[in-house]
Design a binder for these strands. Structure first.
Lengths: 223, 223
DNA sequence: TTCATTTTTAATCATTTGATTAAAAAACTT
DNA sequence: AAGTTTTTTAATCAAATGATTAAAAATGAA
């Protein structure tokens, strides 16, 4: 029997004619709650009920606005990625800075940024793994111009003989590894080295200076 | 009504009098399946049914042998940790090797090891975060002697004026960061740098030589 | 106000999932 | 072989969980 598909009321089709509620909208509340929980615990370990409670709304509202847990997650993930990339792109595209200055800016920016969003890196590393999807594809597209720019700079610096020719792969692995990895491995590192929370922060402050120095040392070390 | 608590038959209390089944026991099959899935997808995203299927046994058997998903996970996790640590400890405790040689051995050992267990590092970084539990405590205890040994070596090398005095925190963060991080961030790195699977392996082979060189350069760079 | 539309809720559904049970099958002892 | 214990299974349970529904409340337009 042809069950006339009950057309669901389209959610959140804002009447273009009138301005938004302006204040902290319900949709935004849900997004923020979802971001907080998804980022901290990952997709599978996060319950939609927890998100609803964190947002202070009814569970049905979540589905009303976002249709499904997956959809909501995709949005949060994309948002997280963009934020993560933005940190680097600003410094990277600053044409007035020298290569060394750029590195220093990137390192500082990332350390500051992750200090305020400590769960982000691991979230991204996790979710990028299980997702060969369009999401990741989209991210790649957004990163492309940045990559091109950095590669060019690397090549120029290499040609001027200032530094060793180093493959971009190694360069980026080193830069991000030295900067981001301590945050990702923080619980492990603190256990193994017996470092307190306060000390950890101090060490990361130190690294703002040290990592650029080390990167430089690496690129001037003789093969 | 006092329902006389149905005493559950104690699982897997092997009669000590007779040797084990010897071949690949059911218990072992379950362990291996659980390890594979837990390590790849984490605790929350892994279903006990999937483990049972992967092991080719009935779901009830899993609970018969291990009582609960949590218990099984704890066992797998401890096992994974030990394996991860073992890689380093062998190289580290080799008294015949010089400091530089040790570093080279550690880097090579880790790169080889993780190449064959690519999901392990991220698993550990994930599970150590949400687990301030006795599990992590136990790990710490097992790592302690290694840490002490490495610290002593670092201090000695520093006193001999061969290298800059470098805090153990920075040293370990650098060593592991440069060695392990590329694997953890592999999908991201490959996307950003446009590197193929084959090329990635080649790069990691290169790093067996390069990372020790870089570590050396870092420790000889002037403050 | 009245009416239409949007937003929110309580209640419920359907499926998934960890766990248990009772009984069958297999292994071992005598 | 008979009896005992261990191992394995099919069936089922109970709780958790993502999603939907129908109706109420709020909002804005006329």
């Amino acid at each position: 029997m042809a069950k006339a598909a009950r057309k669901k009321r389209p959610p959140t089709k804002k009447k273009a004619s009138r301005p938004l509620p302006a204040d902290i909208s319900t949709e935004e509340k849900i997004m923020q709650a979802a971001k907080k929980l998804f980022t901290k615990k990952g997709f599978a370990a996060t319950r939609t009920r927890d998100i609803a409670e964190e947002a202070g709304i009814n569970l049905a509202l979540l589905n009303y606005y976002f249709r499904s847990k997956e959809k909501l997650f995709d949005i949060v993930m994309l948002d997280n990625f963009r934020q993560f990339i933005k940190g680097v792109s600003v410094s990277l595209l600053d044409e007035t800075a020298s290569f060394d200055e750029k590195i220093k800016k990137i390192v500082t920016a990332y350390i500051d940024f992750i200090t305020h969003h400590p769960d982000l890196p691991l979230f991204i590393l996790n979710e990028i793994r299980g997702n060969p999807s369009r999401l990741v594809q989209q991210i790649s597209a957004e990163v492309a111009p940045l990559r091109a720019h950095m590669f060019r700079q690397l090549q120029e610096a290499g040609k001027q003989g200032k530094i060793n020719p180093i493959d971009p792969f190694h360069f980026i692995a080193n830069l991000i590894g030295l900067t981001v990895f301590p945050f990702v491995a923080r619980p492990l590192l603190q256990r193994v080295t017996g470092v307190s929370d306060q000390q950890f922060q101090a060490f990361m402050e130190e690294r703002k200076e040290l990592v650029p120095l080390w990167i430089s040392a690496i690129m001037h070390s003789k093969k």
